[in-house]
Amino acid sequence: MTSGTRAGRGPRVVLFDLDDTLVVTAEVKWAHHKAVARRFYGIDLTDAELALHWGKPFDAMIRALYRDSDTLERMREANLSLEEEFLKRPLPGAVEVVHELWRRSVGVGVVTSTNRLSALRDVERIGLRTDRLVLLQGADDSPHHKPDPRVFDAALATLSGRGVGVDDVWYVGDALIDLAAATGAGLRFVGVATGFHTREDFERAGAEHVLDDVRQLPDLLP
């Protein structure tokens, strides 16, 4: 369960969670949600409320955080209007790791609980070419959400159509819901302790591979 553990046959495709796996999110977006809630709806969000709803699909999360104070579309617009004040940034080494995977001819994709348009902007903003991704799936692209393993159904169907089987796909994420969804779908899971869950949390939950951060991922490759 250490960063030096070898994973046997290497992946043909690595799918990443986005938030707090490739980009710094909780630190930035908790402040963002607090600002939106206060400025538009007069709500003073607490860290406890944010922690309770963090990791939910984006639309469900903002409905809970902003307490259904407006239509979903208007709450999305309110959130978007302050986005430039609270931009996500890449986690150390994340961009370099993706480029290293591409250098080794490993496909890279993203399956995230963030809505698709926001995820595309996040990926482009940190300097990664979205046209090089094998796929990018946002929360609004699937009726299923982590920890439900069916969240991977569409992605795996896309990859299968390209001749990539489930045994050749790894999923990298920072949360226990990532672990549950990935292992339930038959994917090899790699945990990164850059979110709310520690190495010990992942190991207690049965994760085979746990890294301090995504920079150690190439060490797992054959």
Rank of each mutant, 00 (worst) to 15 (best):
G93R: 13
K34G: 05
G161P: 14
F86R: 02
D59C: 02
L101E: 11
P149V: 11
E96V: 06
V23D: 00
R89G: 10
D122P: 00
D20P: 08
H209N: 08
V14C: 01
K34S: 07
V110Q: 01
T114R: 10
A154Y: 12
L50D: 05
L22Q: 04
T112S: 13
P222L: 01
P147Q: 00
R204Y: 06
D168W: 06
K146L: 02
E203F: 02
T158Y: 13
P218T: 05
L179T: 12
R74F: 07
W30V: 01
D19L: 05
D122T: 15
D20S: 07
Q216I: 02
A78F: 10
A207W: 01
V14Y: 01
E85R: 05
D212P: 00
A37T: 09
N115K: 04
A35I: 07
E208T: 15
G10I: 02
P92I: 06
R12Y: 00
A31Y: 00
R188S: 10
D131T: 03
R76C: 13
L87R: 15
V106N: 02
V192E: 09
G165E: 05
P92K: 03
D213Q: 09
V23N: 02
V98F: 11
P147C: 00
F202N: 05
D17E: 10
A60C: 05
I177H: 08
T112W: 11
G184I: 09
T198S: 15
